[in-house]
Simulated scan of single mutants.
Amino acid sequence: MPQATPVTRTERLRLWAAARHGLAPEALALSLAAGDASFRRYFRLHLPDGTTRMLMDAPPAQEDSHPFVAIARHWGAVGLPVPRLHGEDLDAGFLELDDLGDTPLQAYLRGDDHPETLAWHERAMALLDDLQNRALPADLPPYDAALLGRELDLFPDWCLGAWLEIETPPGWTALRETLIASALAQPVVTVHRDFDAMNLMVHERCLYLIDFQDAVAGPISYDLISLLRGRYCRFPPARFAAWVEAFRQRAVADGRLPGTTTADAFLGQAQAMAAQRALKVLGIFCRLTLRDGREGYLERLPHFLDHLDDSLAHLPDQDAFRTWLTREFRPALSQRLEATP
């Protein structure tokens, strides 16, 4: 007797969406819209009245969608621009959301010093102010020392060990402790955790937040760093410092930062946060490549190495680690990249 063909997740998603809208499954127009670095996939649903919606397929075995739903409801309720949730089946891992189009912020970036790039970053920082002032961090997981440490350990585990096969430098433990202590010394706010141009959608010339399921309660500078030291731009030190100072002044004015927080102190915390995130990203991108078989991440490693060097240059007592980056890590990275198809 012939075996029944297993129903694919895409077919199950189609059946779920059809039942929600009272349509025959074969009449449903569904097209793949995007995938991301996780196991989530997104499909565009075209309804007979011309309306489109975005369907998220997040396999429960790999992706827990409960945080996404809870955060979407909370952030939407306080007036933050997030996609509205129209339907959910958390047991199946299916969500139906507003369709915000296909244009993330990076599509509007025209170079590090282009006026349009600078203007959009200003708008993104205004949105970050709103996020930190409106969204309560109380119900979010803490961005504590354990999580900060696990993220930093991605660098020696995956970048140095698994990919480059080189030893961790002697000063690593001290740097790791310094960066964790600096992060924990900052005021705690709601942290998107990937406030990058790829996770800010432009819809009708307005910015919307997406991919916020990993949000935590953590350091006030983290999301600012995600934006200013992200994957698409490398701003000059003076521009970076000016934006960090403008952010500090706004945060002091609205109470997110104590009035005693000096410009030098906050810039130092921001530089340390940037170093933590760069090290984390160097490790994550290697893990995505080696463990998950993802493409397109290794080529971004030199960009984040430059971010890391920019940050360490402004932190005290890091000359030895920077020398190791220049003499050993950067040549090993370049050689490995050249040998990688």
Rank of each mutant, 00 (worst) to 15 (best):
A181R: 14
R176M: 01
A146R: 15
E151T: 06
Y108D: 04
M125G: 02
D139W: 10
R123G: 03
Q186Y: 08
T103Y: 06
D102L: 06
D153W: 12
A135Y: 13
A145R: 14
L147F: 14
L184G: 07
A181W: 04
W120N: 10
G161D: 10
D153I: 10
W158Q: 11
A181N: 08
T173I: 01
A145Q: 14
A107N: 10
L184M: 14
D139R: 15
A162I: 01
F155A: 07
M125K: 06
T117R: 02
A107Y: 03
L136V: 11
L154M: 15
A162Y: 00
T190H: 01
A119T: 14
L160Y: 07
A135G: 11
W172A: 09
P104D: 13
N133T: 14
A185F: 07
D139P: 03
T190Y: 03
D129V: 14
R150T: 10
P141M: 09
L127F: 09
G161F: 06
A145P: 01
G171W: 00
H114S: 07
A124M: 12
A174K: 03
P137E: 11
S182F: 07
Q186D: 02
T190F: 11
D139E: 15
L136G: 13
P104M: 06
R110I: 01
P156H: 11
L152H: 02
R176E: 02
H114R: 05
Y143F: 15
W172P: 00
R123T: 00
P137Q: 12
Q106M: 13
A174W: 00
E122H: 15
P141Y: 07
E177I: 02
Y143S: 08
P156N: 11
L175T: 08
E165F: 03
L131H: 05
R134I: 06
W163K: 12
A146Q: 13
L118H: 09
L136T: 14
W158R: 09
L128Q: 03
T117K: 01
L179N: 11
R150D: 14
T173Q: 13
E151R: 10
P141R: 04
L175H: 05
L184W: 08
P156G: 09
G111N: 01
P141E: 10
A138I: 11
A181C: 08
L160K: 05
A119H: 13
L154E: 10
L184V: 05
R176F: 00
R110W: 04
Y143A: 09
P187V: 11
L179Y: 13
D157P: 00
E167A: 15
D112E: 15
G149Q: 05
I166K: 06
Y143W: 06
L140I: 11
T190W: 03
V188E: 14
D102H: 07
L127S: 09
L179Q: 10
L105P: 01
P104I: 04
M125A: 07
L148W: 04
M125D: 01
A174D: 14
N133P: 00
G161Q: 11
A107F: 06
T168Q: 12
E151H: 06
A162M: 00
A162T: 03
P142F: 04
L152G: 02
R134Y: 04
T178W: 02
L175G: 06
D112F: 01
A162P: 00
A145V: 09
L184D: 04
W158H: 09
A126F: 05
W158F: 11
R110D: 05
L140D: 12
N133R: 15
P156M: 10
